[in-house]
Amino acid sequence: MTPFTFTRAVDASDALTRASDVGARYFGGGTNLVDLMRETVEQPTTLIDVTGLSTTIAETTDGGLMIGAAVTNTALAEHRAVRTHYPVLSRAIVAGASAQIRNMATVGGNLLQRTRCTYFYDVEGSRCNKRQPGQGCDAIGGFNRIHAILGASPSCVATHPSDMCVALAALDALVHLSSVSGTRTLPLTELHRLPGEHPAIETMLEPGELITAIELPAMPMAARSAYRKVRDRASYAFALVSVAAALEVEDGRVKDVRLALGGVAHKPWRAFRAEAALRGGPATVAAFTAAAQVELADAQPLRDNGFKVELAKRTIAAVLADLAGVSA
């Protein structure tokens, strides 16, 4: 591990001041960054511990929730209001990692965790445009069973590993940001970038910008929401495909729907096209399957991951059918 200095920020403005160094990185639970530093994928010169930021989950005036960036994954998953009003979020969190890791990991850190592409991790043996811009990508011609089928580029086919973010994408979550020039909010769906020609740039964050909170707007329909994760073993594995969905059915028709996919792209993939295809239409398995078809129409599978296209379609249809109470 490359040497670094460790400092602790007492609050957001203190963190921003300390982040003026070029090699500074904010540090949450450390569950991803410590590992990346040990592998020398990441080599920060300063770590700024931001677990002193807000750890509260509070109701907002419009009936939503404001979640401090330093809330742990466990604390968010077990929160009564989350379990009741946004069950998809609790479900997504407890589908991820292990209990030990969820106890350590923060909400802010979960958003910024990096891909589990094995070529990205393989500093000595593999080329990676994300780790070393311009170097090339060994995943594209390599073993790419776990890689992206949507929104990838000739530079990078990595996926975003988070389960929590898939639920947040479906829930219209807002990310509250702070920098020396002020504060702003971004929809979660616009925080992460597709790889394009610059896969090393993964988010829309400005240098030194800090995630301070995640806001969930009120969404009554989310009380009926679900998360399904398909993986190689029953527990403690990253998603091959995952689906987060909330569905409101009235008189047999889809009144409203939120749908997002994990394990398929460089970012949590909000399925806007499928949602548009579903709204106002019949709440039937045939309609759910057709909508899934629409969302996956542009899928570009690699050598080893063609199965993800069909898997994603089936999982979307199955989750929506469960929520609608119709049989597949």
Binding site: G30, T31, V34, D35, T74, I101
Partner: peptide, 15 residues
């Protein structure tokens, strides 16, 4: 009282 993984933890974090 909370279980964590000590391999992914920096000792200084737990001051």
């Amino acid at each position: 009282g909370q279980r964590i993984l000590s391999c992914l933890a920096l000792a200084v974090q737990y001051d």
